[in-house]
Amino acid sequence: MAGLALLAALFPLDHLGSYIHWGWVYISDANAIVIALMIIVFVAALLAPFPGRGRRKESR
């Protein structure tokens, strides 16, 4: 229950959502966070070493 209370304190869902308003850009914090996470995962997928990649190259 303490975990749930902490979660509720961090992400209050009984308030209006907050928005980023920057010029013509108008986006909710939640959507902005999801897009930022997608960009982070995309870059990580390009840079992170894939398990067994070296071994595959040697076997070819």
Binding site: F42, A44, A45, L46, A48, F50, G52, R53, R56, K57, R60
Partner: peptide, 11 residues
């Protein structure tokens, strides 16, 4: 192919 061994191909 060897180039498929990258995280970008798992999505």
């Amino acid at each position: 192919p060897a180039y498929v061994a990258s995280w970008i191909y798992v999505f």
